[in-house]
């Protein structure tokens, strides 16, 4: 069994402190100012490119794009489709959690489970998502089915891998401490394994939702 460290790092950035600062925030004005600078620079470059091409078809100017965007957002048809997509992403993500988290717990805790599932998961993981498209259409027909399957499929691996890493990273001392205080298997699972690996599961979920949006198309 190979250590999971490297694989997990591909998906999770492990900068939980950065995340916390991002969420809690210390200085509000800095939080607003810096993103605004980025946006301004991007718009500037965009405008320059638009001037260069001088063609609305090749490269529309940022102003024009914003105006069109505003009108499109009010269109009920667009909102309806947006909601449909949102529903698909959430359904797919839900299934990914449903499969990924238990499997991750199992593989993180038991070496036997790891040996059983790791080869399968590692090989499935490598298949490009687009290669599944024709097959899933054959399997599920042309409805929501293929999309949801693909969203689940792309999201399940980061969830599994991060959950496994989360469980494997739990210090032996915590298990020993719990057992020397009379903790049984169920108590160790609910009071130690779940809370200790929760941050990693959340990181995996974040990646999964992101990948889900990307596989919508």
């Amino acid at each position: 069994m190979e250590p999971l460290g490297d694989k997990a790092r591909v998906f999770n950035s492990r900068n939980t402190r950065l995340m916390r600062e991002k969420i809690m925030g210390g200085q509000v004005h800095k939080q607003l100012l810096y993103p605004l600078i980025t946006i301004a620079v991007v718009f500037g470059v965009w405008q320059l490119a638009a001037n260069h091409y001088n063609s609305e078809f090749m490269m529309p100017s940022p102003c024009k794009t914003m105006v069109t965007f505003a009108s499109v957002v009010h269109d009920p048809e667009v909102i309806k489709n947006l909601l449909i997509t949102l529903k698909r992403v959430l359904t797919g993500f839900f299934y990914a959690l449903l499969i990924g988290v238990p499997l991750g717990f199992l593989m993180g805790y038991s070496k036997t489970a790891m040996r059983l599932f790791d080869p399968l998961i590692d090989s499935l993981r490598q298949i490009p998502i687009m290669a599944w498209v024709p097959l899933t259409i054959v399997w599920f027909g042309l409805g929501d089915g293929p999309t949801i399957f693909l969203i689940t499929f792309s999201g399940v691996f980061p969830i599994i891998i991060n959950t496994v890493a989360g469980v494997q990273n739990i210090s032996r001392d915590y298990y020993n401490a719990a057992r020397s205080m009379g903790g049984g298997s169920w108590s160790i699972f609910t009071k130690i394994i779940v809370p200790a690996s929760l941050p990693d599961i959340l990181i995996g979920s974040r990646v999964a939702v992101g990948l889900g949006w990307m596989s919508v198309i």
Partner: peptide, 29 residues
């Protein structure tokens, strides 16, 4: 087993529990 209490070098307090829950844990078990 609970007949032998153990104090770890790095304390091994459960960081996701408050002091109260940490101390109550062995009693709940």
């Amino acid at each position: 087993g609970p007949d032998r209490g153990f104090v770890f070098q790095n304390y091994a307090l459960f960081p996701w529990m408050t002091v109260r829950d940490n101390i109550l844990y062995p009693m709940k078990q």
